[in-house]
Design a protein around this nucleic acid. Structure first.
Length: 272
DNA sequence: CGTTATGTTCGATG
DNA sequence: GCATCGAACATAAC
């Protein structure tokens, strides 16, 4: 369930349960989640090391190591980070044990995520063409507008493109478009300054609100305001939380977009 | 049995 | 070069 708000929750888990104490044991339960490192090597690197400052960038999570460099997490479609005391969570793929609980489990049913070590987090992000974090205070509305570009691709496709802005996934991109009142299939080239500015402000509000309320993309959505799409988007035959009309479904970039045809506009259509 | 699922990457195709 | 599409990764739920 990893989009920016989910990873923000994992960052808190990592801070509270994984930092400041020496790592007593590193248990790799399935090596397929390791990125370019063997289980033995990871255990040797992390054993006895301490994790310090935690940094989230988009959907990526880094923990600075006392020995230098960073431990890096990505969560794929089903990854989570969970503290535990006695019982290791099912589908734990990597476990960091400390002298006393809480211990930390990287859990990932589908194993589309990965864990690895990097020397330089910024260099890694650059090498992987990850754009600015969607909540980066240094990201301005003007820069965001420029990064969207002027291609014919849909605004939905652009919002989930991590090289444009890092952090939005399928669920929260739909939420931003819903809150902004914009249809997901509108080409970015059709968006004027006003729409880009509106999208930027909406993106910030949506993500800040979700993080503040401790909601994620699929967990804790009941914490979100009642008129948010994310609370109902999973249900078939869901009604628009704003107008009560039926939600529509589109397929964009191989993923499902949910939207309200009444509340979300196409700026190219005649004004009404 | 088929379809769908929060992500990303790669190769083929238009 | 750009964009889209399908497949791939791997597993579970409906």
């Amino acid at each position: 369930m990893p989009e920016l708000p989910d990873v923000a929750l994992f960052a808190r888990v990592l801070e509270r349960s994984g930092t400041g104490r020496p790592i007593a044991a590193v248990v790799v339960r399935d090596a397929r989640i390791l990125a370019d490192i063997t289980p033995d090597r990871l255990a040797a690197e992390l054993g006895g090391d301490r994790l310090e400052a935690v940094r989230r960038h988009g959907k990526h999570l880094f923990a600075a190591r006392a020995r230098g460099g960073f431990l890096r997490f990505h969560f794929g479609m089903t990854g989570t980070l969970e503290p535990f005391a006695e019982t290791e969570p099912s589908h734990a793929r990597l476990v960091l044990r400390f002298a006393t609980p809480p211990h930390l489990a990287y859990v990932d049913v589908r194993m589309l995520g990965e864990v690895g070590l990097v020397d330089d987090a910024d260099a890694w992000l650059r090498a992987h063409h990850i754009g600015p974090d969607a909540l980066d205070p240094a990201l301005t509305a003007e820069a965001f507008a420029a990064r969207l570009g002027r291609s014919r691709r849909s605004i939905k496709a652009a919002l989930v493109d991590q090289s444009v802005v890092a952090g939005l996934g399928n669920v929260y991109a739909d939420e931003v478009l819903f809150q902004a009142g914009l249809r997901p299939d509108v080409p970015v080239a059709a968006l004027d300054r006003g729409w880009r500015e509106r999208l930027f402000r909406t993106m910030r509000t949506v993500l800040e609100t979700a993080v503040r309320l401790g909601a994620a993309s699929e967990r804790f959505t009941e914490r979100l305001p009642e008129d948010w799409l994310t609370r109902v988007r999973g249900r078939r035959d869901a009604a628009c939380p704003r107008c009560g009309g039926p939600l529509a479904t589109l397929r964009i970039g191989g993923r499902t977009s949910r939207y309200c045809p009444r509340c979300q506009l196409d700026p190219r259509a005649a004004k009404g």
